[in-house]
Simulated scan of single mutants.
Amino acid sequence: MKAVHFGAGNIGRGFIGKLLSDANVAVTFADVDAPLVDQLSHDQSYKVKVVGSQCQIDTVTHVTAVNSASQDVIDRIVKTDLVTTAVGPNVLDIIAKTIATGLSQRFDAGNLKPLNIIACENMVRGTTHLKNEVYKHLDETYHQRADVLVGFVDSAVDRIVPPSEAANDPLEVTVESFSEWIVDKQQFKGDIPAIEGMETTENLMAFVERKLFTLNTGHIMTAYLGALKGHETVRDAIEDQDIRKQVKAAMQESGEVLIRRYGFDRDMHNAYIEKILGRFANPHLRDDIDRVGRQPIRKLGENDRLIKPLLGTIEYGSSNSTLLKGIAAALIYTNETDPQAIELQASLTEHGVRPTLAHYTGLAQDSAEAKQIEALYLQLR
């Protein structure tokens, strides 16, 4: 079995690429980083340091790489069995044209085998979004054939992959031992590939929101509350007992939404929260707060990790005081190397808290929540 994977960064190599290779899938990475592509195509292997209660180093094989802006990647799509991505939500729109070109040439070449495409991104229904973008670039004469032969499979992914500290090996990547890759079994075309570590479900949104409302909400709460107190890493912040207490409270607030919406067992979900807190405290992972906290505008979006669970608490009339504090902390976050953080601070200076909230989050300026966030913002500064 062959796969084309867009994105040869740490997540691509350490998570999806590794799972595919471990399942004896021949993986071709597609990326625009020419030195990275050259080294991957030359070495055709790389090391992954897996850290949990113990550490081990695995070697990933069966891999090569091509430039994602070249004809080479089109040629691979023509013949591949699977396409996956780990490029970040903003880059999906860019690679959509390449995938559309690959599909049209695949059909022209007479390849009528089913092809499944899975976007493995931190976004809700990312593959559905990618499909819509691909179809914009795909000539309408191919749409019916694509509807029949191409499965756009939504997924939920979860693995912490911090920047690697292996200065002598640019390909080595560090990952935590925990990983979760859940896909919507109803969206596949043809046989579902047997890949250990890829789980199928008929209720994907429950798992998408469980991850978004727990791992992502907790991670960003830890980062923004940690930044307020001058911590440098997620582990430093979560070992601050005051922050840990608040992060846990925020995940319980978002968890109440999940329990009511999807019928999750309360005790099992509380155990899941404890597991997430343990992952943040992994002594072998150095996860910088600025890596987690970057792009605050995206993370304050109405479908993202702070506002979406907040909207759920409003829907169900449940408590949300800690989530509101996390949103206020997000507004305070500064990072002179992050364009979004700079833009957010400029908006706050020019327009004030509630107009900025309304613009970036969709919360009404005169809502009770916006007023509470403004009061917390002024209190925390």
Rank of each mutant, 00 (worst) to 15 (best):
A3K: 06
G9V: 08
G17V: 05
A26F: 12
D33Q: 14
V37P: 01
S41M: 07
K49C: 06
T61K: 14
H62F: 10
V63L: 06
V66A: 02
Q71M: 10
V73M: 06
I74H: 01
R76D: 11
I77Y: 09
V78T: 12
T84R: 03
V91K: 07
V91I: 11
I95E: 00
I95K: 01
A96K: 14
L103A: 08
L103V: 07
A109K: 15
K113W: 08
K113N: 15
P114T: 08
L115Q: 10
L115T: 01
I118D: 00
I118V: 11
M123G: 11
R125I: 04
T127V: 13
N132V: 02
H137A: 13
Q144G: 02
D154S: 11
V157Y: 00
V161R: 14
V175S: 04
S177V: 12
S179I: 11
W181T: 07
W181G: 00
V183K: 06
Q187N: 12
F188D: 12
I192N: 00
P193T: 05
I195L: 10
E199W: 13
V208Q: 13
N216I: 01
T217L: 14
M221E: 11
Y224R: 08
L228M: 14
T233F: 06
E239A: 14
D240P: 02
A249E: 12
M251H: 05
M251T: 06
E256L: 02
N270L: 14
E274F: 00
I276Y: 03
N282I: 03
D288K: 13
D288I: 07
R291I: 09
R294N: 14
R294I: 08
P296H: 02
R305W: 01
L306A: 12
L311K: 11
K325C: 11
A330N: 01
V353N: 00
R354H: 03
T356E: 04
L363I: 14
A368M: 12
E369D: 14
E369P: 13
E374S: 04
A375W: 00
L378P: 00
L378H: 09
L380Q: 15
R381C: 09
